Simulated assay, not measured.
Amino acid sequence: MILDQPIKKWFVDTTGQDSNFKSFVKSVSWRTVGTIDTIVISYFVTGQITMALSIGSVEVVSKILLYYLHERAWEKMTKVKVKA
C-alpha cells in the first residue's frame, strides 16, 4: 500500500471532505453501471439494440451531470460546522 496515501489526496481535501475529483469519479463509475442497466432494459422493452444504445447514450450525459450536482449538494449539506 505504498500508493495509498498519495492517491488518498486525490479523493479527500485538507479538511477531510470528499474532493470534487472523487465526486466526479463516483459519478462516472455509477453512470457506467446505470447506463448498462438502461441499455439492457431498453433492449428488453424495444427488442432493438440500436434503440437501446440510443436511449443509453442520451441518458448517460445528462445523468452524469445530475449525479455530480447531487453529490456536491449532499457534501455541502452534510458538512459539519465547527464553532470557533
Rank of each mutant, 00 (worst) to 15 (best):
A52N: 09
L69I: 12
G47K: 05
S62A: 07
T35H: 05
S54C: 02
K63E: 11
G47D: 06
R72L: 11
V33C: 07
E59D: 10
T46C: 06
I2Q: 14
V40W: 11
L65E: 05
W10S: 02
T38N: 08
I39K: 02
K76V: 10
G56K: 03
I41A: 08
T32P: 00
V12Q: 08
S42K: 06
E59L: 09
F21E: 04
M1W: 09
M77L: 15
Q48N: 15
G34Y: 11
I7P: 03
M77G: 04
D13S: 04
M1C: 03
W74A: 05
D37K: 01
N20K: 09
M51C: 01
S57Y: 07
Q5F: 07
L53K: 02
V28T: 06
D18N: 05
K9M: 08
V61L: 15
W30Y: 10
P6D: 15
M51K: 06
E71P: 00
D13I: 05
K9W: 12
F21R: 03
I2C: 04
V40F: 13
W74T: 02
V40E: 10
D4A: 07
P6W: 15
R31K: 04
A52Q: 07
K63S: 15
G16V: 06
W30V: 02
I41W: 09
S29D: 02
E59K: 02
I64F: 10
S19Q: 10
T78P: 00
I49Y: 10
K22F: 10
I7V: 14
V12K: 05
F44Q: 08
I2R: 11
D18P: 04
S42A: 14
W10G: 01
V45Y: 12
I64P: 02
Q48P: 00
T46A: 14
T50D: 10
K81V: 13
F24W: 13
S54Q: 09
S23P: 00
I39R: 02
I2D: 15
T35S: 13
K22N: 07
S27Y: 07
K8C: 04
V58H: 04
K79H: 14
E59M: 08
G16C: 10
K81M: 13
K81N: 15
I39L: 08
G47Y: 12
I64W: 11
N20I: 12
Y43D: 00
S57M: 13
W30H: 02
E75R: 12
K9P: 01
V80W: 12
S27C: 11
Y68G: 00
A52P: 08
I41V: 15
V82M: 07
K8R: 15
T38S: 11
I64G: 01
L66I: 09
R31D: 09
K8N: 15
K9Q: 14
V82H: 08
T14S: 15
I7N: 07
V40S: 09
V58S: 02
K83R: 14
K83H: 12
L69M: 13
E59N: 10
I7S: 05
D13T: 03
S42R: 05
